[in-house]
């Protein structure tokens, strides 16, 4: 598959909303253990609002960027917490790189890169600090490597798999950013909730693209 269209972008976001709702308790439990227990609810509240916004659009959105921008502004105004501005900034930056109706492999790489840069710019966290960056950064690298193929779905798959592995790899880490850092050594042994929600988000992008391919 060389290109994904704006329909994919919408399906991605709706899929993400439904996966995050299903994963709400898992995220809550992770955040309960090393944070303050609201991440599941934050993500669910945010994406539920995004879906409501999508449903309420009078005119169909025309570009992938428009979909991502709607996600960005809605998350920014409904999530709060640390994850609200981080995901909000990620989607805002990503929205700027695909200002057209379809996205090819190159666009998708840029999308993941821009999102990650946005998160790092806002949160000032680096790989290894046990945050969502530990899922995003490997996704960038994997997407870049997969880009040569020219296969859009392959790029997404690579990114999602790398994010999944990156999230799992946060388990033994000691947090030095975000709320989990207050726990010091006690933060080791639990997966970072934001890294887990990142893995869910990118997996949903694959699911939505596979639907298009099938």
């Amino acid at each position: 598959m060389t290109e994904l269209d704006v329909g994919w972008a919408e399906r991605w976001i709706r899929q993400a909303a439904s996966d995050l709702k299903a994963g709400r308790d898992e995220l809550t439990e992770l955040d309960r253990r090393i944070g303050d227990g609201d991440h599941g609810n934050n993500m669910d509240r945010g994406f539920t609002a995004v879906v409501a916004k999508l449903d309420g659009q009078a005119e169909p959105l025309e570009t992938v960027g428009q979909v991502l921008k709607l996600v960005a502004t809605t998350l920014m105004s409904t999530v709060g917490g640390a994850s609200g501005p981080l995901y909000g900034t990620a989607f805002l930056r990503a929205s700027k790189v695909v200002d057209q109706a379809t996205a090819d492999a190159g666009h998708l790489v840029s999308l993941v890169e821009a999102a990650t840069e946005g998160i790092v710019a806002r949160g000032r966290a680096h790989v290894g600090e046990k945050t969502m960056v530990d899922a995003w950064q490997p996704a960038v690298e994997a997407a870049e490597s997969a880009a040569e193929s020219g296969d859009a779905l392959a790029v997404l798959r690579a990114a999602a798999e790398a994010a999944e592995a990156g999230a799992v790899a946060t388990v033994p880490l000691v947090a030095t950013k975000g709320r989990a850092s207050y726990l010091g050594e006690r933060s080791a042994g639990t997966e970072d909730p934001g890294a887990r929600s990142t893995a869910m988000l990118l997996a949903a992008a694959v699911t939505a693209a596979e639907g298009a391919a099938a």
């Binding site: 303050d36 227990g37 609201d38 609810n41 934050n42 509240r45 920014m76 105004s77 409904t78 999530v79 709060g80 917490g81 640390a82 609200g84 501005p85």
Partner: peptide, 12 residues
Amino acid sequence: PGEVFTSPTPDQ
């Protein structure tokens, strides 16, 4: 005031 234990959003 944000949601319980959740920072308020910028627009608030």
